[in-house]
Design a protein around this nucleic acid. Structure first.
Length: 360
DNA sequence: AAGCCGGGGTA
DNA sequence: TACCCAGGCTT
């Protein structure tokens, strides 16, 4: 399809639809590079409704890039707790310092410079260029992939390099000069409200006419993706270790799963192993602590991307009482008062347990 | 190219 | 249960 025809049949109907149908969202109040950047990082693999309260809290506490750069990583991580993908907030901290120290506090209005910044990849760089600066740059996220795979009826897997290149090229051709901010947001808004993964609302779609998949009746089969691996069920046990009214918590390593977050010690229950025995073993392996397992607190289920976890929680105590930990897994540890749980970032399942403890 | 990295909403 | 989400980094 010729570019002008593409604009006439797709781009213009999209921006006109966006004019009247867009949702009122906090990050659409102003299009500053800082607010666009924060919202885009938060929105990576995270749905709008979940981001909104985090975004509002963040902007209240850190209204400027400079306020982020001088904040402690611990406080940033605490504000991020519950959103997942915690490396994002570490990258935000790093990038805020780089922009302050190397760019005089101003975001570079340059795609290649943006791509060098930690946590900013092709999508986010395109988002800052187009949404913040309104420069003529495309962006491709899950919405854009789905919409274009349907409009052009892309039968190849969108996970392949060549298909991705094709989609980026089409996204670029769709850009209306001087209106990239609007066009790109319109695409993503259409993906969120109309061209949804399941049961798309084609009746209300402004680009129904040029959509090949709609006419072929195969919108549900687009985009083509490889089947994902199914969640593996695992059993986990954690111990709430108390001494003199203080609680023992440890900090996870700086890399890997839930990096830098704090947690109650514990670990995976082996096949055929009793939870209590697993807990004694884990305390010994990770901390060289000899513990006695006490009362059961709760069993709760928690879903991860690739695991469905059944978590057993027990009170426990040191026997004998005067032991010092030797850290084989954790990077740090603390004995804290119950009111200090709020000062540390915990994984969601641990936070649920803490909330329960506070009610006991 | 594939794996890793969270968490919750939804059907 | 399985899939999805305004992706990026590492290997």
């Amino acid at each position: 399809m010729e570019t002008s025809l593409l604009h006439q049949q797709i781009s213009l109907p999209l921006v006109n639809w966006f004019d009247t149908h867009q949702r009122k969202l906090p990050w659409r109040e102003e299009y500053s590079p800082y607010s666009v950047w924060i919202s885009e990082i938060m929105l990576q693999q995270t749905q709008v409704d979940r981001v909104i309260p985090y975004y509002l809290r963040w902007m209240q506490r850190f209204p400027t890039l400079e306020s982020v750069s001088i904040a402690s990583y611990e406080e940033l991580l605490r504000l991020w707790e519950g959103m997942g993908y915690y490396s994002r907030v570490k990258f935000i901290h790093k990038t805020s310092k780089i922009i302050l120290n190397q760019f005089g506090g101003q975001f570079p209005e340059n795609l290649d410079e943006l791509l060098k910044l930690p946590g900013i990849g092709p999508y986010t760089a395109g988002a800052i260029m187009s949404i913040a600066f309104n420069q003529n740059y495309p962006l491709v996220d899950g919405n854009v992939i789905r919409i274009l795979a349907r409009i052009f009826n892309i039968e190849n897997s969108v996970e392949h390099r060549e298909t991705k290149n094709f989609i980026w090229k089409k996204a670029e051709e769709l850009i209306l000069p001087g209106r990239a901010r609007w066009l790109n947001q319109a695409l993503m808004e259409l993906g969120a409200l109309i061209c949804t993964p399941k049961s798309p609302v084609c009746q209300g779609c402004p680009v129904q006419k040029p959509c090949l998949s709609f006419h072929l009746g195969c919108t549900e089969q687009r985009p083509v993706v490889q089947p994902s691996k199914k969640a593996i069920p695992i059993k986990v046990v954690v111990g709430v270790l108390q001494k003199d009214g203080l609680f023992f918590i440890q900090q996870r390593p700086a890399n890997g799963l839930m990096a830098d977050l704090w947690e109650f010690p514990g670990g995976k229950i082996n096949q055929g192993e009793r939870p209590e025995d697993a807990l004694v073993r884990e305390f010994q392996e990770e901390l060289q602590f000899n513990v006695q397992v006490g009362e059961k607190i709760i069993t709760l289920k928690h879903g991860y991307t690739n695991f469905s976890v059944t978590l057993h929680a027990y009170f426990c105590k040191l026997v004998p009482e005067n032991q010092s930990p030797i850290l084989h897994f954790a990077s740090d540890y603390r004995w804290i008062k119950s009111e200090d749980f709020r000062a540390y970032a915990f994984p969601a399942a641990n936070r649920r347990l803490i909330n329960l403890l506070n009610k006991l």
